[in-house]
Design a protein around this nucleic acid. Sequence first.
DNA 1: GCTGGTCAACTGGTATGACCAGTTTGATTT
DNA 2: AAATCAAACTGGTCATACCAGTTGACCAGC
Lengths: 241, 241
Amino acid sequence: MLKPVQKKSLSDSVFEQLRAEIISGRMEPGSTLPGERVLCEMLEVNRGAVREALKRLEQARLVSVQHGGSTTVLNFRETAGTDLLSTLLVTPEGELDTQVARSVMEMRSALASDIARLCAKRGREVAGPLAEVVEQMGANRKDLVALQALSLSFWGLLVEASGNVAYQLAFNSLRDSYARFSHLLTRVLADELTDLKNYKAICEAIAAGEAEDAEFYSRDLMEIGERQIVRVLDTLDRVKE
Amino acid sequence: MLKPVQKKSLSDSVFEQLRAEIISGRMEPGSTLPGERVLCEMLEVNRGAVREALKRLEQARLVSVQHGGSTTVLNFRETAGTDLLSTLLVTPEGELDTQVARSVMEMRSALASDIARLCAKRGREVAGPLAEVVEQMGANRKDLVALQALSLSFWGLLVEASGNVAYQLAFNSLRDSYARFSHLLTRVLADELTDLKNYKAICEAIAAGEAEDAEFYSRDLMEIGERQIVRVLDTLDRVKE
DNA sequence: GCTGGTCAACTGGTATGACCAGTTTGATTT
DNA sequence: AAATCAAACTGGTCATACCAGTTGACCAGC
């Protein structure tokens, strides 16, 4: 399968470079960035490119820039939003950050169960489309990659029907993080993806408006995958020592 | 109390204007934005300002711009991160969006209980500083505004000690949303803020490493505030009809 | 009739150099 | 020592030119 080649603009490169410096900690929170004109020289680009990159960093809450003053590095852990997760998931060395991965899995479990609960409470109309997805999962029970996509659809429907935008936005960030490593997780999540019984149970609980059941089965389902992934992460950590 | 006046740059204004158009739905997802040069004319600013604003919109995942092609509006509900919450909390008319507020409160409850649980599991060393905050809360039990700040410190410590970056980043967005209306919530949250017994119970559960207790008391505490706020939100909705 | 090439007219991306507007600094004045 | 003020920073705005992808109409050539 061929993928579209990714093309980066200058300001994108500048942005990524500065972001890496900040996230890695090489630029400490509170320290000041070089002036725009200096950055131009160092990076050998024009000032417009630098400014566009700085605006993006500001939007991501990684830096704070003030007219006349200087641009300072923020403590992103205390300011950034969840959209930074997919970036944090990759260490400066390009490897998977296991601690961040654990965080993502924990959040996934917590959100999923509450999403299902809310859905049973006030989004029962989604049970129909949901059942269709589960049916397709049944038809593709041997194709893990297809199941991955269907599972994402399943939870996408659920989170939308939950009527909770906060969860939806957090879900977006989790999904983006997931996308970065989905190919590695296909097999690790096999048990969860093929647990059709649980998907159906969630579906039925929502259709029946049984919030507690929906919450219970979701938590159960999530814990299956979380357990497996944590096991892999623990192994990874042990190997690296 | 005087507050520093906020000074907006041109690109900030452009950004906010376009963001409002997108969030309000006046610009539909999938539709294309006018070209940069056209925007310049319409907004009467130079192209640099427009481009900086577009970069920020891109970073916030509200639009997608491609070289040579056109700039299209994204469905922010399916792409943005939690940092958009504080913006969504205010309707185009400048009022509080009660549905978003409910979402925020629900997420708060879900996160808080899991944060406390994780803290008891692997962040017990925070019990000391935590106890200090609780002690200060006791000393200021009559000053609701002080209690608000201390409560934020309490949860800030907790989320940091939980060792879960995903929760920390989500917490940042919740905190920002909260900040916008904290003055209105001072009295509504009075019962929660003065429930010292519960704060202490959480504190002790964490010190003892009792994850289930920490989770239970947190959920209990959050539900106090959530119940009150939901009651107010329901009233607001009823009045507006 | 289809494929593939070419070209013009879009779109956004980069570059430059000037100037405006706040902030900081430090020498000067009181 | 404290207040003052002007240079020398910093970022913000601007106009203009040109580079670089994208699109679609058009036109060979098989």
